[in-house]
Nucleic acid binder design. Structure first.
Lengths: 149, 149
DNA sequence: CCTTGACCTCAAGTCGACTTGAAGTGGTAG
DNA sequence: CTACCACTTCAAGTCGACTTGAGGTCAAGG
């Protein structure tokens, strides 16, 4: 049983963030001692998963879904596979970008923008970045229409 | 020479975003026809680079630095290499996360949190996520101290 | 027993990256 | 020539993810 400062110390997250996470249902405390939250050790694992998910570019909402909204961390397998595929795409993008940067750094062409290798890398990598952007914009509009005010 | 709607169409970005990018100095227009902005073709390349950078998790500010604040896209080679290394780290993180997800999806253990493979993947991957978080928090505090109000 | 300080709540603030809306302007089709 | 409408500006709003601050509570040490 850990108090909030202990969780903070061991997770590296400020107490304010832990309270916030509890408020939005990402973690839960095992109860209170007086006013004070007490946490189980398991929360540390959950916090690791959250940080990891964030590093992967998922929103807290998505992470909440992946971890199971309600306490128990039993997860929808199909959803996991979808997320993994998403990550695969992202990794390919980043790899292309990294190669692009490396190439640009060592390319002796007068302007790397003229280099065909660079151009190809870029075009490849950008295609579905834009698609993703368009999709998210669409999602936003759809959400807004459902809640017209 | 393209007008803003043409750039919007070909880049997939709303006109409002293009104006915003110009305002913050990420792109520039070749001039005006009356009130209306006109852009060179080259802006499309630049916009691709910007989207790419975003997909890689860089802020617009960082992207501005990478692309060269002032018009010309000649870039600091050393900075490029640093960014590439950063991407390498991020790619490794994401790969670990992806493997973790895949493993979790197929693991038959009663709870994947008890699976040693999963635990190792997670611990490995989270370590410097937390470091990065701490660093950014530190940066914020430093920036605030310099501009005490 | 009383003070201290780590914890609490709740409202408001911040930051990045845009979007939205109202009100104005001017190139061009009819 | 004039009406239309795509463009413009500028201020304000939004969203996610937190942080900050004021004011309150209570367990433990002196």
């Amino acid at each position: 049983m850990l108090d909030i400062s202990e969780v903070s110390r061991r997770s590296g997250l400020p107490a304010s963030t832990l309270r916030y996470y509890e408020e939005v249902g990402l973690i839960s405390s095992a109860g209170r001692r007086g006013l004070r939250r007490i946490f189980e050790e398991a929360v540390l694992t959950r916090l690791s998963l959250i940080s990891l998910g964030q590093a992967a570019g998922f929103s807290l909402t998505e992470i909440g879904q992946m971890l199971g909204a309600t306490g128990t961390p039993s997860i929808d397998r199909e959803q996991l596979v979808r997320k993994a595929d998403e990550l695969d795409r992202k990794i390919r993008e980043l790899t292309a970008l990294r190669d692009g940067l490396r190439h640009t750094a060592s390319c002796t062409a007068p302007s790397h923008l003229e280099c065909p290798t660079f151009q190809r890398l870029m075009r490849d990598a950008t295609t579905h970045v834009v698609k993703g952007r368009a999709r998210r914009a669409q999602d936003r509009r759809a959400a807004k229409d459902k809640t017209p005010k």
